[in-house]
């Protein structure tokens, strides 16, 4: 938005296509038995489909919320995009550059590293206990940008001001900072190298409501000032609704619905999204319009049947067709997509 930014290539900032991550699971004994049995052909080891052929985009300056049941693959997806984990297949394009081909283990030294930064759930746990706040903020700058000592010092002070961290706290260690102050250090550190995409995995889950408000307001303000895009993972749907432009809903490794946040919250189309939104805690019982409780057993993420809808068995609308044909993500309105035969 600002005049200084170089003309950016057209198209979305992040373009994820058919991204998949499968983990091999199974006991060691199983592995050994397979390795030593030469009579039978070796059966493939069970595969856990953590992220399954996921495609979506994030525009420049856009905030996209990622929600879904615990264990549905949100953190795995984030670790793929952030190149901490190697995908099994698929593509991760950031401003036109393909990142999926780089190895996670070498990515720390990659010139693209600075373009994606991450704010973690537990600011306390993700800070090195022996680094002062200033060291923590300086660390990515030292590794990824060339700067003189004086420049670095000025930059740290600037970042402290931007994130509302009093400068006199810069020499403190994590255990001497409050939860909200640690969260600010985590954010300052992530924006220090001027990323284009900031990924936030439950950034306020460990914070009090009162501190959370301030941190969310800070994030909103930084986005306005710096024009970054956010991928925001959260279980607090009220927070997602307040902060995000668009929302992606995942269920067992698949994106099952996406669209503008306001529309998805007002009029969810996928049966899982409906159940999710109806489960938002509601203090006033009059406000609740009938809660959908999901019965049935969740399907296994291990070697799932590719012809059965992942939600089948728990879905209140399921029919035999859902057990024969996997629903694909298809348009459902101008900016919306949903993966259900009957939505």
């Amino acid at each position: 938005m600002t005049g200084e930014t170089p003309a950016s290539p057209p198209g979305p900032l992040l373009d994820i296509a058919e991204l998949a991550k499968r983990f091999t699971v199974g006991s060691k004994q199983g592995l050994l038995a397979r390795a030593t049995s030469f009579r039978k052909p070796v059966a493939p080891l069970p595969q856990l489909h953590a992220v399954d052929e996921v495609s979506f985009t994030i525009g420049r300056g856009e905030t996209v919320g990622l929600v879904g049941e615990s264990g549905c693959g949100k953190s795995t997806l984030v670790r793929l995009i952030n190149r901490l984990l190697d995908p099994t297949s698929g593509s991760i394009r950031l401003g036109g550059a393909e990142l999926a081909d780089f190895k996670a283990r070498d990515f720390a030294a990659n010139p693209h590293r600075a373009r994606i930064q991450m704010v973690f759930q537990d600011a306390g746990d993700s800070l090195n206990p022996r680094y002062t706040a200033a060291d923590a903020i300086a660390d990515p700058v030292r590794r990824l940008k060339k700067m003189s000592g004086a420049q670095l010092k000025a930059r740290i002070a600037e970042l402290a001001d931007m994130t509302g961290l009093p400068r006199e706290l810069l020499q403190r260690f994590p255990h001497q900072l409050s939860g909200g102050q640690k969260a600010r250090v985590g954010i300052a550190r992530a924006i220090a190298v001027e990323p284009e995409l900031l990924i936030l995995d439950e950034p306020t889950a460990a914070l009090d409501v009162s501190v959370q408000v301030v941190i969310l307001q800070l994030l909103q303000q930084l986005k306005r000032e710096l024009g970054m895009s956010y991928l925001f993972v959260s279980h607090d749907l009220n927070v997602v609704r307040l902060l995000c432009d668009r929302v992606l809903v995942m269920y067992l490794g698949k994106v099952v619905e996406q669209g503008p946040a306001a529309e998805v919250f007002a009029d969810p189309k996928h049966p899982y999204t409906k159940a999710l939104i109806s489960a938002i805690p509601q203090a006033e019982p009059e406000q609740r319009v009938g809660r959908l409780r999901l019965g049935g057993e969740p399907r296994s993420p291990i070697d799932p049947d590719p012809t059965v809808c992942r939600f089948y068995g728990r879905c209140p609308k399921g029919t035999p067709r859902c057990a024969e044909e996997m629903p694909l993500l298809r348009p459902a309105g101008p900016a919306r997509q949903v993966a259900c035969h009957f939505a």
Binding site: V67, G68, E69, S70, Q121, E202, A205, A206, H235, L237, A275, L276, A279, I280, P281, R291, R293, L294
Partner: peptide
């Protein structure tokens, strides 16, 4: 239930 999605949270609370 911090860190759990709201549907799982509802299951635990139930």
């Amino acid at each position: 239930t911090t860190g759990l999605d709201v549907t799982t949270q509802a299951v635990i609370m139930d």
